[in-house]
Simulated assay, not measured.
Amino acid sequence: MTVTLSDEARRYIAAFEDATDATAVDCVVDDERDRVVFVVKAGEMSRAIGRGGENVQRLEGDLGRDVELVEDAPSAEGFVAHALSPAAVYNVTISENDDTVAYAEVAHEDRGVAIGESGRNIEMAKTLAKRHFDVDDIQLT
């Protein structure tokens, strides 16, 4: 799928790549929750985070917003699992009927983490999965 970026998101990606030396393939600016979520090229997550989280901390200071990272994946199943991280996701199944739905099997004790405060984590996972793999919904099992 083709992801369309706003000018603001492109500026954030440029700042991210300068600060981390990692590649961002997408950026979602969440003004409601004052955060920026970057989708990091697969295999570059540790470079993006930096030793002890120093890159993320520096970027948060530079941008004046919370920064969250999601690692890209070649499949919808892998992407959904990464988007729900740090929750323990055991399995993701994609069902394609009228809508494309990802069913994510999440550890019982991590359901709250997957959902997030006021649904912030699962809503962002849904947004990213829609942008990258045309997944209409994510359901936790």
Rank of each mutant, 00 (worst) to 15 (best):
V56C: 02
V106F: 12
G43V: 14
I13V: 06
L140M: 11
P86W: 05
D34K: 11
F79G: 13
E68S: 02
A73S: 14
F16M: 07
V135M: 06
V80Q: 07
G119A: 11
G112L: 11
E109K: 15
D134L: 05
V67T: 11
R131N: 13
G53T: 14
R58G: 01
R10N: 12
V67S: 05
K41L: 11
G119K: 03
V3H: 03
E68F: 01
V39Y: 02
V25R: 08
A48Q: 07
D62S: 10
D110A: 02
I49P: 07
V36N: 11
A73E: 09
V40T: 05
V29Q: 04
D62W: 01
D26N: 15
L84K: 10
I115Q: 11
V40A: 01
R65Y: 10
G112N: 08
G78W: 06
S6P: 08
E123R: 15
S6Y: 09
A73V: 04
V67H: 08
V3Q: 05
R11P: 00
P86E: 07
K41V: 00
V92S: 07
D134C: 02
D136A: 11
M1K: 09
Q57E: 10
M1D: 11
D26L: 10
E117T: 14
L69T: 06
I94V: 15
E17F: 08
V113W: 04
A48M: 04
E96W: 00
D66G: 14
E54H: 05
D98C: 00
A104E: 08
Y90H: 15
G53R: 10
F38K: 05
R47F: 01
V36M: 15
M45A: 13
D34T: 08
E77H: 10
E17I: 09
R11T: 05
V92R: 11
A129W: 11
D34N: 15
V113E: 06
Q139V: 14
A125P: 08
S118C: 01
C27I: 12
A104R: 02
G119Y: 04
D66N: 06
S46F: 12
D136E: 13
F79V: 12
V28M: 07
D30A: 06
T93G: 02
A107H: 05
I138F: 14
D72N: 12
A24L: 09
D134G: 02
D134V: 05
N91M: 03
D21P: 00
S75K: 03
V92F: 12
G61F: 07
D31W: 04
H132I: 06
V101N: 05
A76P: 10
A19S: 10
